[in-house]
């Protein structure tokens, strides 16, 4: 989900540019500290692979087809750090060469797809490393969910109007594309490991440190996202209004209302409601992933 320019309000895109661009710059400088650029051609080729992979269609039933987005697949091949660099390059290239996503909104798109999506996938792979199939499916699903929900939140925080029916429709759409991405990621990684399992860099059993680091990074990102949202009172009011309207349910859903009454400033309540929504969505994916994994291995 690439956000074009002018859909985000200046405080939102400025803040996200200020967060994500220095952050990915830091990751790049850290990864290539001794200016040993031996690995860069491979990363570029992997980026080109993800681009080209989008030409291959996957039938998903009902006569429609989908294609890979690639974040989770790259994490399972290159590991999270290199994936952040490759995905950032892809997002920037899409903005500058293909007009897919804005240039001023680059920070937002990098944040959603190259940082949050990648961290979410890496977390899923780590957390479920004992169940590789479930982990891969989930990695694909949560990477899409994280990117899409962040994009939606940023748009709402920027004061883009969205009637509740549409909000639910887009959430449904996210869920479908999450499941599709999870299934594609799982199927492709399995096919790759049949060719040569040494190509994969799935997380090993060891290593609590990285997990903690990633959880921390994810938490920081969430806090940063809500800080951005709260710096935009107009947007937040719209957000609140939207969620409030949606409490007259059009679709009966457990999350209808989205409002948990919590003490504290209103934005905190809303932020936690949104976070709870994300967690619930992730839990639903998790359950589905386990179910699928069990069925496939049976």
């Amino acid at each position: 989900m690439h956000i074009p320019d002018n859909f985000l309000s200046p405080p939102v895109w400025l803040a996200l540019d200020a967060i994500s661009l220095p952050l990915v710059g830091w990751v790049a400088r850290r990864s290539f500290r001794d200016s040993d650029h031996t690995a860069t051609p491979r990363l570029g080729v992997m980026g080109a692979f993800v681009f080209a992979a989008q030409m291959i269609n996957f039938p998903v039933g009902a006569g429609t087809s989908a294609h890979l987005l690639g974040g989770a697949l790259l994490v399972s091949i290159l590991g999270p750090t290199a994936t952040v660099l490759v995905m950032t390059t892809i997002v920037a290239m899409q903005a500058f060469v293909f007009q897919d996503g804005g240039v001023l909104a680059l920070g937002a798109n990098v944040f959603n797809m190259a940082l949050a999506g990648v961290v979410a996938a890496a977390l899923a792979l780590r957390a479920f490393r004992r169940f590789p199939s479930a982990a891969l499916f989930l990695a694909g699903a949560v990477s899409v969910l994280a990117s899409a929900f962040l994009a939606l939140a940023e748009l709402l925080a920027s004061g883009v109007h969205m009637p509740p029916a549409l909000l639910w429709a887009s959430i449904g759409l996210f869920a479908v594309s999450a499941v599709v991405e999870g299934a594609i990621t799982l199927a492709v990684v399995r096919a790759v490991s049949r060719l040569n399992s040494r190509w994969l860099s799935l997380p090993s059993q060891a290593g609590r440190g990285p997990l903690a680091a990633f959880s921390l990074a994810a938490l920081l990102m969430a806090v940063a996202a809500f800080f951005v949202a709260s710096s935009q009172p107009d947007g937040l009011q719209t957000l609140a209004a939207r969620f409030h309207i949606s409490s007259q349910p059009i679709l009966p859903a457990p999350l209808a209302g989205y409002s948990m009454s919590l003490a504290g400033p209103p934005w905190l309540g809303r932020a936690s409601a949104a976070l709870a929504g994300l967690l619930l969505a992730a839990a639903a994916c998790l359950a589905l992933g386990r179910f699928l994994a069990r069925r496939r291995s049976a």
Binding site: G25, A28, F32, S35, H37, G47, L85, A92
Partner: peptide
């Protein structure tokens, strides 16, 4: 950063 330029 040069890394991004080379990857791109």
């Amino acid at each position: 950063p040069r890394a991004f330029v080379l990857i791109a």
